[in-house]
Amino acid sequence: MKPAQFDYARPKTVEEACGILAADMDARVLAGGQTLVPMLAMRLSRPSVLVDITRIAGLQGIACSDDTVEIGAVTRQAAALASEVIRAEVPLLAKALRHVGHPPTRCRGTVGGSVAHGDPSAEIPLAVTVLGAEIVFVGEDGEEERFAPEDFFIGPMLTTAPMGGLLTRLVFPRRAAAPTGTGFREVASRRSDYAFASAGAQVVLNADGTCAEARLGIGSVGDTPVAVDISGLSGTRLTAQDIRGAVVEALSDLETVDDLHATASYRKRAAVRLAELALAEARDDALEQAG
């Protein structure tokens, strides 16, 4: 378990990093290294050069504007989890982060690294998908390019990341002023394993307690995290029956496959169950805020 030989570069600017990436097809970005380093050790990944972006100024940190919360790509998952801003303004992401790996890996792992890797069972991409966050790249020419999640995640560990581009930040919408509840559920063999199925949900309530907006995403089951249309819940009181009906219909054509640890039929049933639990959690959360 010694990596094959590689070169190592530690650029100081985004521009420099993009230059290296653009010049060499086999260069790979090293951020927190929690997935990449084990893959290097098993020689499943054999990059020519590792571009360590953790010392580039400006890629870390969390900033709040009028409508959005921006997270630098190299922000450690542990820092994001500890962030008051994220807890208050992007509560679904805060809930998702608790399920990412475990404390030691979160201290190294980065928010942007997880998104760039595009694992369909990863929690941060699921939160990005549910909330419709923007994924921002800077190209070799210094121009920004913004991706919607559904255009970015296209397969297992497969994204439309531009060649020679560097993921610099994520732009999440701030939560609504109205009561906004969130729920995040997943099931795995062990606490920090890749989930068999995961569900993230967010609901916003009208003043009369009915549902103004409901969002749901499912992770781990398909090739990418998927946003599920459950707009039918709008206007309902989000009773257990409302939720069940909407979820069963929305997830009826979910496609998945067997693997070593779980059958496809299990994953599908688990996805439905988790979606119900996540939506119920979101509803209860919102009702609590509504008083």
Binding site: V187, A262, T263, Y266, R269, A270
Partner: peptide, 11 residues
């Protein structure tokens, strides 16, 4: 006893 097997058995 895998989780998936237990769940499938019940289903």
């Amino acid at each position: 006893l895998r989780m998936s097997t237990i769940s499938d058995t019940i289903a």
